[in-house]
Every structure is written in structure tokens, then in C-alpha cells.
Design a binder for these strands. Structure first.
Length: 476
DNA sequence: ATGTCC
């Protein structure tokens, strides 16, 4: 994008003053290099979101923003129901509550390397992965509704995971207000056999080494120790979330006119929060959030069983589990006044600062762990929420590196086999059912995750705590 | 992201 289209607020923040039907400004957090690299579509989409009814303060984009469906991926926007605010299915995305969780291990890099290939084989054999992957858990009608209401708490009752896990999951593992009745039979049917599965695309399970610590005190509070390994899982609500997104997008697009909403882009289909459709979507979306939380809890359980085979009994305590595709009711201080807002984060991570009451005690004073998934070769980062993030984008940060090339362009540039071999030469073992998927997810198809997190830190969205280097990657 | 088009 041409930086001259923006007013420079700082080295890492760029503003577009309202023009046309924009109700608020658009603000993109990016370094000059990242901004130049972004697609013009990010400008169009971020400014389009600023036209939606009831939007508060500004339409934001994170440093990893790229072209998405309606909203940019890496978009953050908050709406006030008292001011005609809307909820948008495209503002959450198709993979509702897609997110990342990281488990701690007491294993050293050497211990993992001594069984690297075998451990990769076992994880790949036992964690269902790929398009249409099905698991051992099959839900009947009653179990489906209990799962959609109970989230990770339900998974725990079924014998998956440890009770302590709930403390480390957003919302304590279960979001209130889920309405299984608002979820179609078709969405439920698609999910019936998909619990405890990874899925495809950018989803993965990785064993990573804590390679570098930037903030020793916070790392210690999070349980991260240099040279030790962690297990990170990135997946979402599978077929259920996708089906809910598809159905509500269609319904919202059809109904927009009846609500008197004129859409700058049909993909921005939305409904007033205070409408039957808006409430029904929120109930279904929260059910999908619980589905994703339960899904990750079960995948974590399977991984723990695999680790127990190799290394004996170990707890693999959960460090944190955080979603990056959600719309959540939160209280934010706007102009000195607390307001209840519906915050859409699409490819953006909640990043609560120190002292937030909803953070678990062990690390409340350090701020929320913000888990940033990099690409296969580039590694990942753990960040921490900072106080000033509240004034930047409702306490939000980036969620990953962000794509540089489209999936199609990536498959033209690389073969999956070539990528697997190159990563093996670097000491990273990859297992995947889809070599095309690996090519689409090639490290070169993503921006430099280091530059993205440096920018997030410089912009005051979050601060760097640790860098994680992959040793094993199970890829969807 | 996705039973990669009901």
C-alpha cells in the first residue's frame, strides 16, 4: 500500500480520516515496511468496516493484517448496541474461535531430539489431521448440546484434560450465552465426528523449543524456561463453525436492507446486536466458541497421552489457550465512561494488560499471554498484554505472521516435498497428509513473524516474552 | 478456514 494514503501517527501507526460513509477513522498498526507490503485490499476493507452502524472509536488493523472475507484478517472493531451497533458473521470469520494453546513440558531439546522422528510419527498417528478428519469421539444429540454449552468444561467431564486447565483457558474454558438451539442441524451433523481433530489450512500441532527469552520475569511467571520444550496446538471449531459462518453470512446479507443497513460490501453482512437475528448469531457463535475450546482440550489430551508413552507420566500443564476469531461482549473505557461493547477480533488476539480480573492469579500482574503462531520454519512468539494496549485497539494484538502470498501463488512457487526436505535439513520434522497444504503454508508464503511482533511491541499492543523454535510440526 | 461447489 502507498503510505501517502495515510496520516502518520507514529512509526507504527497510520490513520485514515473518515471519508465518504465512514463513521470513524481507520487505524492500521504497522511499520512503514509492513504497511508498504500490505495489499491495497486491507485499506479498502478496514475503511469499509468503519462505515458500519454503531462502530466505536475506529476500525483497526493489526501488523499482520491481510485480505479476508469482508473484514480484513487482523481486523478489530467494536460496536455499541445502544448506538445501533451490529454484529457481523464476516467480522468473526468462518473458523469461529480458531485459536492457540501452549502446554509446558519439562523436556529438554535433547530429550525430544532423541525420539524426534518416532514422536512425530506417534503424534501424526493419533491426532486426526487434515480436511474432513474424524476422531474417536462421536456425539449424539444430547452430547452435542452439552458440548456446545459446556466447552472445555464438558471435555473435562468426559475425561479429557486436567481440571487445572480451565484456569488457563479464556473464559475459564466455557463462554456464557451459548445457544445450541441457534445452531442448525446441519452444522451439528458436520461436527458429530470431528471433536479432537486438527483440521487443515494453517492449523498445526508443534513441539517447540523455548529458544530465547526477552522478558525473564514474565517468562518465569508463565512457566517458560529457555532450553525446555513446549507443545502448541492451533485449531478451531472445524465444520461446525464453518457451517454457522456460512449460514449466518447468507441470512445477514439477505436481511441487511430490512434493518436499513446499507453495506459498502456484501461480504460485510451484519445485523443489529439488538435484533432477533443478531442475538441468534451471537448464541450460535458462542456455541462455536465452546466447540473450539472443547476441541483444543481434547487434542491436548491426545497429545498428553502420546507424550506419556515416550516420557512417562507428565502433566504437560496448560500455559494458556486463547482464541483469535471471536466477537465478545467486553467493557471498555471510552472517553472516561465504561461502555459495554461487542468487540470483533478476526485474526487478532485479545491482549489484556496487567491486573485484569479475568486473568489467572499466577500471571495476573504480568498481563495476558498472547500466543503468536509463526509459519512452519519461522517459529512462534509468546507476548504479554500491556496496559497501553487498551488505548490502542481495545486490548488486542496480532495473531501470526500474516500471509505474504496467496495459497495459489505459494503452490506455484514451491512443492510440499521440497519444503519438507528443506525443513528437515534445518532440524524440523514435518508430518502432513497434504503436500499441497505444506506448499500453501511454506515459510516463504508468510511475512517475517519477527518483524510483525517487533512492530506489535513498538506499537504498544503487547510486549515480547519468548521465542519458540519448532522441532516437530504436525500440519493439517 | 472448509465434507476446498448443495
Amino acid at each position: 500500500m502507498d503510505r501517502r494514503r495515510f496520516e502518520k501517527l507514529s512509526d507504527n501507526a497510520w490513520r485514515v480520516a473518515p471519508f465518504g460513509a465512514m463513521r470513524v477513522p481507520a487505524v492500521i498498526y504497522a511499520s512503514e515496511d509492513l504497511l508498504e507490503e500490505m495489499d491495497d485490499k486491507v485499506f479498502d476493507q478496514t475503511t469499509n468496516v468503519a462505515m458500519l452502524p454503531g462502530i466505536v472509536e475506529a476500525s483497526y488493523a493489526m501488523p499482520d493484517a491481510h485480505w479476508g472475507y469482508g473484514f480484513p484478517i487482523g481486523g478489530v472493531a467494536a460496536f455499541d448496541p445502544q448506538a445501533g451497533g451490529v454484529v457481523s458473521a464476516g467480522g468473526v470469520g468462518f473458523d469461529i474461535s480458531c485459536g492457540v494453546r501452549t502446554h509446558l513440558t519439562s523436556l529438554t531439546r535433547e530429550e525430544v531430539l532423541s525420539v524426534q522422528e518416532e514422536l512425530a510419527d506417534a503424534l501424526y498417528a493419533l491426532v486426526p489431521v487434515g480436511v474432513g478428519a474424524e476422531g474417536e469421539v462421536v456425539l449424539d444429540r444430547a452430547a452435542m448440546d452439552a458440548m456446545l454449552t459446556g466447552g472445555a468444561r464438558w471435555a473435562l467431564e468426559q475425561g479429557f484434560g486436567n481440571a487445572k486447565d480451565l484456569l488457563g483457558i479464556e473464559e475459564g474454558g466455557c463462554i456464557e450465552g451459548a445457544e445450541p438451539a441457534a445452531v442448525s442441524e446441519r452444522a451439528k451433523e458436520r461436527q458429530r465426528r470431528e471433536m479432537g481433530t486438527l483440521g487443515s489450512g494453517n492449523h498445526y500441532l508443534e513441539v517447540q523449543e523455548v529458544k530465547h527469552i526477552f522478558d525473564p520475569a514474565t517468562a518465569a511467571a508463565y512457566g517458560l524456561e529457555r532450553g525446555k520444550c513446549v507443545l502448541t496446538i492451533h485449531c478451531g471449531s472445524r465444520g461446525l463453525g464453518h457451517q454457522i459462518g456460512t449460514e449466518f453470512l447468507r441470512e445477514m446479507a439477505v436481511s441487511a436492507q430490512s434493518f436499513g443497513i446499507s453495506l459498502p460490501d456484501r461480504e460485510l453482512a451484519c445485523a443489529p446486536i439488538n435484533s432477533e437475528l443478531g442475538q441468534r448469531y451471537l448464541g450460535a457463535m458462542r456455541a462455536a466458541i465452546n466447540c473450539a475450546l472443547a476441541n483444543r482440550e481434547i487434542v491436548g489430551h491426545i497429545a498428553r497421552e502420546v507424550f506419556a508413552r515416550f516420557f512417562g507420566k507428565s502433566e504437560l500443564p496448560l500455559m494458556f489457550d486463547v482464541s483469535h476469531n471471536t466477537c465478545k461482549l467486553e467493557t471498555h473505557r471510552i472517553g472516561g465512561k465504561d461502555r459495554a461493547l461487542f468487540v470483533h477480533r478476526k485474526g487478532a488476539t485479545r491482549a489484556l494488560g496487567p491486573g485484569s480480573a479475568s486473568l489467572p492469579e499466577p500471571f495476573r500482574q504480568y498481563g495476558q499471554p498472547v500466543l503468536i503462531g509463526g509459519s512452519m520454519g519461522a517459529g512462534s512468539y509468546v507476548l504479554a498484554g500491556v496496559e497501553q494496549s487498551e488505548d490502542r485497539a481495545f486490548s488486542s494484538a496480532c495473531h501470526g505472521a500474516g500471509r505474504r502470498l496467496s495459497r495459489h501463488a505459494a503452490t506455484r512457487a514451491w512443492s510440499g516435498r521440497q519444503i519438507v526436505d528443506e525443513l528437515r535439513a534445518k532440524g524440523i520434522v514435518v508430518r502432513s497428509p497434504s503436500m499441497r497444504g505444506v506448499a500453501e503454508e511454506a515459510p516463504g508464503a508468510y511475512k517475517d513473524v519477527g518483524a510483525v511482533v517487533d512492530c506489535a511491541e513498538a506499537a504498544g499492543l503487547a510486549r515480547k516474552v519468548a521465542y519458540l523454535a519448532p522441532l516437530i510440526c504436525i500440519k493439517g
